[in-house]
């Protein structure tokens, strides 16, 4: 199997996997970073969202061979102590119910606020609509994004 050198959360990681392996499964199976979640495998639910050079990216659709030479950030690397403004806002609004989709929601929100520090309701809706929450925590997510934009 080919070897790949990845930069994940600021650390170099080397993995030996099939070249078409999605980054999602490299993170979860090979590196043990399981905060990035599997939900659909086809880029429809957003549970697997990570940052690739700061942009929100569906890790289930990004093959490992395309993931070299970029900076990958997962939920585990978003902040040192869970104190990224988005994470703090998530705690303040006590957003999660089951919690499974929330890492993906947080990563999408963090990327949004980086590129657009004061998004409108419509912009929040448009960006966050790629992330499904079956529990229905959408209102709290929106409130938390707004709170985070002020932190």
């Amino acid at each position: 199997m080919p070897k790949y050198s990845l930069k994940i959360n600021g650390e170099k990681r080397s993995v030996e996997v099939d070249s078409d392996t999605p980054l999602l499964w490299v993170l979860r199976d090979e590196i043990g970073l399981v905060g990035t979640k599997y939900g659909c495998g086809i880029g429809q639910c957003g549970s697997c969202t990570v940052h690739v050079d700061g942009s929100a990216t569906r890790s289930c659709l990004l093959q490992v061979s395309q993931a070299e030479g970029v900076n990958i950030t997962t939920i585990e690397g978003l902040s040192k102590d869970g104190d990224h403004p988005v994470q703090k806002a998530w705690l303040e609004h006590d957003v999660p119910q089951c919690g499974y989709c929330q890492a993906g929601q947080i990563m999408t929100a963090a990327a949004l606020l980086k590129s657009n520090p004061n998004p409108s309701d419509k912009e929040i809706d448009a960006t966050m609509s790629g992330n499904i929450c079956r529990c229905g925590t959408y209102l709290r997510i929106k409130q938390a994004v707004k709170t985070a934009s002020k932190l």
């Binding site: 905060g35 979640k37 939920i75 869970g82 998530w90 705690l91 499974y100």
Partner: peptide
């Protein structure tokens, strides 16, 4: 607040 809140938002293995 949810006792698992911090673990959820930092991606700890819970599931």
């Amino acid at each position: 607040k949810n006792v698992d809140g911090k673990k959820i938002i930092t991606g700890e293995p819970l599931f």
